[in-house]
């Protein structure tokens, strides 16, 4: 095979691979939207109906409990995690810590980033066992927050690092303290920070393994922070394993809601990033 044939062959292969990936993804999204949308449109009220007493067996009622559970678990978790992640990322900049320290922390963050979500679930479970508590919404929040933390920190750290040094120099030059300078840097890097937080939110709302053992996998409406709850991914997982066809069909409606939520979040992050780009010096669009 001469080099020109090889070149043509691999060019085709590269195109084919990209086309294959895109085609598979179109298939996944369209199956979800088609199957889920059909179930959802037939009876949109299942999203806002509380589950009946035998929901998992007979499919009476809807899955409002999981929708609310997702909101009440992933929402607070994202806020806690975002505050922690932004603080960590600020501390890792050169104003606060040495390069050696930030390299060490980054190594740990990489390890945490690669840690399977189920390990976080098991970890929180051991804490629950150790303090003799019951699985509840609160521990679901803790598990999701821990899961999101390394993701958000990495994105935020990268965004802060790519903020132009001139912002830092200008604020120091005006006599600002380290903290005030850090806030200004964070502002200049806002599009990247927001994108990181939304990315963490999207990952958190889609993850089942962390909340599977920690939130209680309840099939009732959540009653309070120390009561059992469930989230949409866990619900889909449980519904898909059900013997009842009606419950299984609800899984598609739930995944329709979930995929719309995730796609919507990504869209929002793009819009927000564009909006906050005005804080970046030179109106950098990223």
């Amino acid at each position: 095979m001469d080099r020109y044939t090889e070149q043509r062959l691999f060019g085709l292969l590269a195109r084919g691979a990209a086309a294959l990936v895109v085609a598979v993804m179109v298939l996944v999204i369209s199956v979800t939207i088609y199957r889920g949308g059909r179930v959802f449109l037939m009876d949109p009220t299942i999203v806002i109906t509380p589950p009946g007493s035998r929901y998992m067996l007979e499919g009476d009622g809807g899955f409002l409990h999981a929708v609310l559970g997702s909101i009440f678990i992933v929402g607070p978790a994202t806020i806690i995690s975002a505050v922690l992640a932004v603080s960590t990322a600020i501390y890792l900049q050169s104003d606060y810590s040495s390069e050696r320290f930030s390299d060490t922390v980054n190594m740990f963050l990489n390890v945490l980033w690669g840690t399977p979500p189920i390990v976080y679930g098991v970890f929180v479970l051991t804490v629950i066992i150790a303090i003799g508590a019951r699985t509840s919404m609160f521990f679901g929040i803790v598990a999701i927050a821990i899961f999101q933390y390394p993701i958000m920190t990495r994105y935020t750290d990268e965004a802060l690092r790519s903020a132009p040094d001139s912002v830092k120099e200008a604020t120091y030059g005006l006599g600002a303290t380290r903290f005030e300078t850090a806030l200004m840097t964070a502002r200049a890097a806002l599009p990247g920070v927001i994108a990181g937080i939304v990315m963490g939110f999207a990952r958190g709302i889609g993850d089942a393994a962390t909340v599977l053992f920690t939130a209680g996998r309840s099939t009732n409406m959540p009653a309070g922070p120390f009561d059992g709850a469930t989230t949409l991914p866990v619900l889909i997982f449980d519904q898909a394993m059900s013997f009842n066809a009606e419950v299984r069909s609800h899984a598609y409606a739930a995944s329709f809601i979930l995929i719309i939520a995730v796609l919507g979040l990504i869209l929002v992050s793009k819009l927000l990033a564009g909006r906050y780009a005005r804080y970046a010096p030179g109106g950098r669009h990223s």
């Binding site: 895109v22 993804m25 298939l27 996944v28 889609g206």
Partner: peptide, 22 residues
């Protein structure tokens, strides 16, 4: 293509599992 693939990296794996079932 690249923004499409970025979006796909964020799709929950439970949805892949569900679609795979059928």
């Amino acid at each position: 293509v690249s923004s499409f693939i970025d979006v796909l990296a964020a799709i929950p794996s439970v949805i892949f599992g569900l679609v795979a079932l059928i």
